[in-house]
Nucleic acid binder design. Sequence first.
RNA 1: GGGCGAUUAGCUCAGCCGGUAGAGCAUCUCGUUUACACCGAGGGGGUCGGGGGUUCGAAUCCCUCAUCGCCCACCA
Length: 882
Amino acid sequence: MLEKTYHPAEVEARRYALWEASGGFAADPASGKAPYTIMMPPPNVTGSLHMGHALTFTLQDVLIRYHRMRGRDALWQPGTDHAGIATEIVVTNQLAEQHIDKRALGRDRFIERVWTWKEQSGGTIVNQLRRLGASPDWPRERFTMDPALAAAVRRVFVSLYREGLIYRDKRLVNWDPEMHTTISDLEVDNRETSGTLWHIRYPLEGEPGRFITVATTRPETMLGDTAVAVHPDDERYEGLVGKTVRLPLADRPIPIIADAYADPKTGSGAVKITPAHDFNDFEVGRRHSLPTINIFDADAKLNEAAPAAYRGLDRFAARKKIVADLESRGLLEKAEPHTLTIPYGDRSGAVIEPWLTDQWFCDAKTLAAPAIAAVESGATRFVPRQWENTFFEWLRNIQPWCISRQLWWGHQIPAWYAPDGSVFVAESEAAAAQEAAAKYGRAVALTRDEDVLDTWFSSALWPFSTLGWPEKTPELARYYPGDVLVTGFDIIFFWVARMMMMGLHFMSEVPFRTVYIHALVRDERGQKMSKSRGNIIDPLVLIERYGCDALRFTLAALAVPGRDIKLAESRVEGYRNFATKLWNAARYAQMNECAPDAGFDPAKCRLTVNRWIVGATAACARAVAGALDSFRFDEAANALYQFVWGSFCDWYLEFSKPILSGEDAAARAETRATTAWVLGRIVHLLHPIMPFITEEVWQQLAGARAGMLLTASWPDLPADLEDAEARAEMEWVVAAVSAIRTVRSEMNVPPGARPPLLVKDADAAATARLERHREHFLRLARLARIDKVEAIPKGAVAAIVEGTSLILPLGDIVDLAREKARLEKEIGRLDGELARIAAKLGNPGFLAKAKPEVIEEQREREADAGRDRNRLKAAYDRLAAV
RNA sequence: GGGCGAUUAGCUCAGCCGGUAGAGCAUCUCGUUUACACCGAGGGGGUCGGGGGUUCGAAUCCCUCAUCGCCCACCA
């Protein structure tokens, strides 16, 4: 017997353990079924579940459960990411709390610490995924630093290096002076800030008293200036080009050059050029073969290239001092407020410094071309489609990808240097040594490159490295390419684009056919959830409060394509109520001995209600499958909600009551079997979204022999179960009952009173229907506190007038005055409608241009309204005569 | 500076290949009916952001303005 209330926590723990132990999550390469693959975006190994995870993993789990039920060999490949910089920051901070300095500890011992931390906390996120009901193939779980995945990384690196697609170069990079590492353009967070624009006078050499004024937001970088640029067409500076200025403070001569980069409309029109510390200036410097003077060290403190007075100062302290010194020398023309964007490291929060260093780069432009082509050709398609533009936009303007990081935690770059600086890139030290020996004719001492690779380099390989690549495994042949990638738009660049590039390059095939991009989860006011705002909703708290199924259903119902999700807790509560409703419906079925009957054939039902609910179930199944096939999780959820609550519970179960307590044994049996059958279909259809409660209900109703829903078959119901006749009849009854209820509430019947209700002017068909469903009418009418429902044939008006209460066909009232007023109003409304329709039908434009069926529809509407109007007028006249 | 999205009932949102405005929550009224008060029945509440256009007809298509949000960008 089902308990009186549903206890999510207990059921979830028990059911999950049974599922996992059953092996039902596992893909089976030997099954002979068509594969269906989803690569799980690996969460950070040290992370914990937030609402974004809850959304993305719920949607993935819905898809994987659905397709598993549809008979596919479903592989949901799980795993975690080592998250280089994020993890290194966490562990470094932990060490700092224990007053341990990372550098003092040394590389090897630091990495040991990280592995220890990973062992301790690495299980958190995967266990939280279990709380969410996720059903990936756990035994296949991978970690981006697994030996096999590390081998794949080395193979890819070496291979791209030999093709010339990975190279070492000295360029300006984004340098994080706190973490002491480079980061890629994508990891830079540009924030608008209010600052100051300083106008500085640079004295012209040999012309005392003459200056050229430059404007800058970063005066400290002037110490690295190697030119001043003006626009070639700028008349103000005609004649100055080619002259020399004396760079203040540094006291160096630098040339005035002409370059179109200088915008006459901006600042003073003359711009200082600091090739070593500004991306634009770097380009200008290249064009004019200017020297680059690097004035910062790795901490972004001024180095020995700066005048002695500034050496060792932090860049911000130096700025203050330089501004003060310029002012005291009368070289500061003015300082004005100015908004500018300042680059921050998205992980460390430090202000990023453009810095000239040797780094490893990946030729993203070359790799991007096939990725662009694949989306253009439709080999991979985005849902919603509009994200393809975002994808194209970025890939078409892609810059070289800086892949080296000066971190310790990550895949160390497989490059070794000989004493003369020659580099040997190989998959192992032995192989590098061999190459070196071949070159020098003797063994030489090699030192390995200290740097590690960008985290996203290894995650870019995820779709094939997890399947065993570069080995030719059966899994690789079977599960690549994946069917769908589910992820948020925020990592289209970081991850999706790079998987496309690597997948196409190494597998000659896209990594996935469809990319489903979901929105961000925000709070109910539309704010992004963040720790600093304090508006984080913890999915685990919601799970504890309302149950996992309620949370999953909420996320599915709110997953409207292309729109952010504003999560209101009241929604979760509402769907918790929905779960309770389902539970109680199951209890009702159980109390009434509605047991599943293997011999039940839904096509053979005789009672109208049963034929109707069978058809409605089939329609619901069709709607849910159609919605899930097109990633409309919201439509699937809503179709189920409406059907279960609106059709099954509100109408069907109420209808079943008089039958089940009635005399007709055959009708009782059929209704019991139908109820059990429909409930069975419901838990199947609902299972992908609400796995726990459906499994529990199914197991308790059908018994263990029936097998788990997890591995059950999707109920594809034949369309011919949808019985138009039964549906029409039920629609009539539903409309009739609704009308009766309305009437009752409009009659102002005192509380507690149970008036009779007379259905007036009933024609033969209506009378027959009312008789056929008499018990149902009575039962449902009693819900409206009405005890007697009678049909009164046409013409029996006198009886009505003497009666206590009555209604017109499907719902009008009776107290004479009220009734007259109501009729007047209704007739007026119909007159208005008739006038509008007549105007329409008298409009030549309408007749000429509207579709024939629309015109026909208007004619029918006119005829209906006309009939209604005449009937009401007749009724009114009769009432008026009384 | 470019691009994208949003603006519909008090709140959160559907509807948008044009044809009489919908749901959930909230609110109000009624209700001890043998699954469920995490319930049932019913009601009130919207000139679909403003303006213009196309059309017989626009929440739905086009233009424009306003407000909000996001992404990208090298502007001193």
